Amino acid sequence: MKVKIKRWHAVATWQWDVNDERCGICYTAFEACCPDCHIPGDDCPPVWGGCNHAFHMHCIMKWLNSQQNANKQTCPACRQKWEFRA
């Protein structure tokens, strides 16, 4: 018996490969976007620190820029010195 496919509709979803469900700064899901963005996706990806905490790129940049001393920028979750994970 042969089956002939007349029509096919594909549906796909994407998801960031992050252990946490939400950004620790804005508390918005990583599948959504930060409060500064309008459309989720590549414009605001999650970024990780050396301590393995993840945040939206815009959220962590705001956090780091708000700290007075650029030499003592810390992770908002654990207060370790912030370094972007390579």
Score class of each variant (00 low, 15 high):
L64W: 00
K62W: 04
V18N: 05
D20W: 05
L64M: 00
G49I: 06
E31C: 12
C51T: 03
C51A: 06
Q68E: 14
V18L: 02
C34G: 12
W63N: 10
N69R: 09
K6C: 04
L64S: 00
K72P: 03
I5S: 07
P35F: 08
W16H: 06
W8M: 13
N19R: 09
N19F: 04
A54P: 06
V47I: 12
G41F: 02
G50R: 10
H53A: 05
C44L: 03
N65K: 08
N71M: 07
C37T: 07
H56R: 04
I25V: 13
H56C: 08
Y27S: 08
F84Q: 15
W48T: 14
Q73C: 00
G24E: 05
E21S: 13
C75N: 01
P45W: 03
K2N: 14
W82M: 09
P40W: 09
P40A: 02
F55V: 03
P35W: 09
I39A: 08
P45D: 07
F84A: 15
V18Y: 01
A32P: 01
S66H: 05
D20M: 09
G49K: 11
V47R: 02
W82K: 04
D17L: 12
A70V: 14
F55Q: 02
W82C: 06
C44Y: 03
W48H: 12
Y27F: 11
I25Y: 03
C59R: 02
A32R: 12
P45Y: 03
W48A: 13
P35D: 04
I5N: 08
D20H: 11
C23R: 04
H56S: 05
K81W: 05
A12N: 11
G50P: 00
E21Q: 15
M61H: 11
P35Q: 08
G50L: 11
K62G: 14
D17K: 15
K4E: 10
L64V: 01
C59K: 01
E21L: 14
K4F: 04
H53T: 07
P76C: 04
C33V: 06
H53D: 10
D20V: 06
C23D: 13
N71K: 10
D17A: 10
C78N: 01
D36R: 05
Q80P: 00
I5E: 11
F30Q: 05
G50H: 11
W82P: 06
Q80G: 00
F30Y: 09
K6P: 00
C75W: 02
K4W: 02
R7T: 13
G50M: 10
C75L: 04
F30I: 03
W14P: 00
W16F: 06
E83H: 11
W82T: 06
L64N: 00
N71F: 06
C59Q: 05
P76L: 08
N65L: 05
G41W: 00
R22H: 11
W8C: 08
F30V: 04
C23Q: 08
K2I: 13
I39Y: 09
C23P: 10
Q67E: 02
H53M: 08
W14I: 05
C59G: 05
P35H: 06
C75T: 01
R85K: 15
F84D: 15
D36G: 02
